[in-house]
Design a protein around this nucleic acid. Structure first.
Lengths: 147, 147
DNA sequence: CTCAAAATCACCCGAAAGTATGACGACAAG
DNA sequence: CTTGTCGTCATACTTTCGGGTGATTTTGAG
């Protein structure tokens, strides 16, 4: 900012000097005053425009438009995960249950036996204090364990 | 934009007229050429600055800040409800299922027999193309039928 | 009033889910 | 090396779900 003013001042000084020179030259050779005025006008207009641009260049109006995002990225609430003491496997199975898969489908997906899925889900229900898988899903969603 | 150029041109014209007047006045009364030049310089510098400001005024930086919408009031997607052809009762039962209630608990809550709940839920699953209640819940949530 | 949709209930049966118990191997921590 | 957790699997049993069928009552629109 101050730098610009300084530059502006220097330019003004230089111009005055230039004007003096021009004045004597042109006046002596009897040139019309219009050329002189036009020159001054052009130069100062240019400087003015330049100054105006410089001054407002960084003055950008920041418009903050807040956009509601319905589907946030979702990250698992690790704190709750620890509170419930869920193992990674149990958490994984909770997700699949929430997706509406049956025990058999989960078993197929994870390449384990259906019995394994049952033991996992049983322990899962215990830890979540759920009596049914739908209840587990509901608790899981509320606690931020699953999307 | 064009408007500005027009205004600028008009100003220029006016100034030339003004200059003519000033010229004769000041020349006649033998005033120094510096005052004339300074005036022109000042006016054109001002116009230049003004123009510069006008030209760059609209440099607005739009910052889009994504804000996770806190807790929407949630309203049932009536359109989807009709698409699926769910009756009020079926929709009600879907909600209770999503809350993790068993058929028996739902029956108790609605003061109907467990069989009734079963027939309702059966038709519900048919309409939602769900094979299990967990799947029905998942579909229901996706479709905005339930919170 | 009449008809259709909605809501209610019952019974049966097979499938799925959930409980209980026990067991085995892997692996990390003490 | 021992202990504990985790993941795996099995067997047996109970409960819940879901499908199918049929029937009655209620209710709202025509």
């Amino acid at each position: 900012m101050k730098k610009h003013i300084l530059i502006y001042g220097i330019c003004g000084g230089l111009l005055i000097v230039a004007l003096k020179v021009i004045e004597y030259r042109f006046l002596v050779v009897e040139h019309s005053i219009e050329i002189y005025g036009g020159l001054v006008a052009a130069v100062f207009a240019a400087v003015g425009i330049w100054l105006g641009l410089k001054l407002t260049k960084k003055k950008e109006t920041v418009v903050v438009r807040e956009v509601p995002v319905p589907a946030q990225p979702f990250s698992v609430n690790q704190t709750r995960l620890q509170e419930f003491g869920l193992t990674p496997r149990e958490h994984e199975i909770l997700e699949l249950i929430a997706n509406g898969l049956s025990n058999r489908e989960i078993a197929a997906k994870l390449f384990v036996s259906e019995n394994t899925v049952k033991t996992h889900s049983s322990r899962l229900f215990d830890k979540l204090s759920a009596k049914r898988r739908t209840q587990a899903v509901q608790i899981g969603k509320e606690s931020g364990l699953i999307p």
